[in-house]
Nucleic acid binder design. Sequence first.
DNA 1: TTCATAGTTCGATCATAGACGAAGCATAAA
DNA 2: TTTATGCTTCGTCTATGATCGAACTATGAA
Lengths: 230, 230
Amino acid sequence: MKDGPAIANVAALIGDPARANILTALMAGKALTVSELAQEAGVTLQTTSSHLSKLLGGGMVSYRKQGRHKYFELASHQVAGTIEALMGLAADSGHLRTRTGPRDEALRSARRCYNHLAGTAGVQVYESMVRRGYLTVDAADLSLSTAGRVFAENLGIDVVRLSKGRAPLCRECLDWSERKTHLAGSLGRALLDYMIADGWVKQDATSRAVSFTARGRTLFNDIFPVLDAV
Amino acid sequence: MKDGPAIANVAALIGDPARANILTALMAGKALTVSELAQEAGVTLQTTSSHLSKLLGGGMVSYRKQGRHKYFELASHQVAGTIEALMGLAADSGHLRTRTGPRDEALRSARRCYNHLAGTAGVQVYESMVRRGYLTVDAADLSLSTAGRVFAENLGIDVVRLSKGRAPLCRECLDWSERKTHLAGSLGRALLDYMIADGWVKQDATSRAVSFTARGRTLFNDIFPVLDAV
DNA sequence: TTCATAGTTCGATCATAGACGAAGCATAAA
DNA sequence: TTTATGCTTCGTCTATGATCGAACTATGAA
């Protein structure tokens, strides 16, 4: 056998069920400890430790040490993007168990993607903002207009602070269930944070799904109305 | 261990060295027989056959039967895109052997990506056309302007016929070596076909690299000049 | 028909690497 | 200090699956 191309290494890294569980758990964007990841993956602590060192060696994850805890997270947005691409492939190619049960329905409807809102709700946010001119799409760049800035600040989001951060303020992110663009970047993150803080949504403890409260859904549709394309 | 997520299946499929070799061979866009793929992967015919049936089951490849030959190709553009994403990950995360030797240099310079031109030359085509307004980038859509249409038709490309096809005329494709956009879609394919037919480039028999002839390079730089951004 | 080539299926072999128990570090609390 | 918790390392077991030889099917050529 020829020495396999580099691609095989990283794919094999993702291809193990336990590691895939770890990575999908990290897709939510929250940093998790080894123990928490062991729980998610359904294997013992030792096994998880071994998997994490492999993922680390492959540049898929990074960690911060804090006291006697080790918080792992995805190494880059590129990693997250690649995993989303694989999810997209897995979704249609074969094994149609992705559309089974109400829980997956919930996932398709609204979920965290890395750290922002995805699913139909995420797409609704994006399109609603684009169509009102709050977000302007230019070449491959997405930016917040003056009107959009006012809009965000009315929600109590500190745009100035966000735009000083290292992460881009607005970024497009392709939704694997909707196959449409939704809003990522620090603004996307801030919007989801806001919805959580203001009690619009509740996060599912075991999955990436988020569910709207009755009040939250009303406010959501009010503030991010579905509009026709121009 | 929890039953692994669907993503693990498809990643594991790509994660085997022999299968990764098969898939990267198919990335060139040409349909290949089982024997040819066995050659590429460096394993026997039986082993290749087994791998291909797995890839087929996973929806990664498809085939056409022709006489006693079976021509395999990538099942969709989505598959190709996912593999490119993995290549991107493999490129920076660790193992810096991507920049070894002149052959890889050739690959970075100009190669086929699925069916169109990629590498620095591919990026040059794209940027040159965008900056002259032949291609217009709008939201996530790429389209050919009237001026661009005239330009393409002057090269003898039948734009009308292309735009009737099922494939989109212009599509963006992220270059894994350059990390910039290059031109895909049926127009991208037609341009590469033109360069081959007119003897601008010669295809490497064993890799995805393409090399310019002296005349071809001159014409190329003439027709797709490097321009400054607006 | 016979022969040759393309590809598949079967069966056996064998290496890899994923799993966990047990023991060892390291950090923090008591 | 002692004790508890979080994580790592080591060693062993085991199952999976990649591989190839050999035999089989299918298509085409002579």
